[in-house]
Amino acid sequence: MDYVLLIEQLLNGFQLGIILFLMAAGLTLVFGIMDLVNLAHGSLFMIGAFVGGTLTLATGSLMLGAVLMVPAMFAIGVLVETIALRTLYRRSHLDQVLATFGLILFFNEATRLIWGPEGLAVPLPDFLEGTVALGAGITYPLYRVVIIVIGILVALGLYLLVARTRFGMLVRAGASNRVMAGALGVNIPVLFSLVFGIGAVLAGLAGLIITPITQAAIGMGEDVLILAFVVIVIGGIGSVRGAFVAALLTGIIDTMGRSFLDVILLLFLSPNAAESAGPALSSMLIYILMAGILFFRPQGLFPPRSATAAP
């Protein structure tokens, strides 16, 4: 096994983890603060890709498209929250699952109607093409480095926002005791809208950021959504820090499993058996990880301290 490939795959896993974190951060905040199961978070990922992609093609610049996408996604998020989701907070989880499942069907079909069934390809700008040398004979695509850097900056910004600002303080207060925070004069409906808007921007950013690599497609958010579920279950629902650790863990284990599991299995199995068992086992790896973690820690790795206080 050569170490250049190993480090490359490690970086790929890191990059997948960053995408997962952008998704999971919004999900876990919405869960933790509003106690809402939002399946439509995957749709926001898709909408971000399509809206951001359209803006990119219209302005001719990915950077400008991304910048313009932020207010657009924020507006869409606030709109979805006020129109469709606000009435669901007091409902059972079952109702929330069903209603947001309905939203997915709606958004998928609306996207098909607006952008057509083929999806949308967004070209990578010239200055982001190419590779960078990371030393010791390792080269890595520049754009993937950019994704990792952006992800780390966003994670840092989110941490500062939640831990260091007045807004973050209100968010944490709302998460640990919604009723008490409301009684102390926090405008809960506005707070919820803002948090949902931020979640939508993060999901949309994740969607747009991978579009130059994969292209925007209908239903693209659904696989990522389920992985993000795994991430927040592992990390502990409501914990942004847990989401970050679990996202990187999930991304790296998934990627490493896909590239090296068959090689490792060769040590124990015949080449034939290893070749058929490798892909099967590697696609199951993160779910096995999740089951294992839950077996020992049903609340996830970083359970929020207030989790027991929530009704």
Partner: peptide, 8 residues
């Protein structure tokens, strides 16, 4: 989709 939400 919206029909579902209304049912809920």
């Amino acid at each position: 989709g919206p029909f579902l939400i209304l049912v809920v």
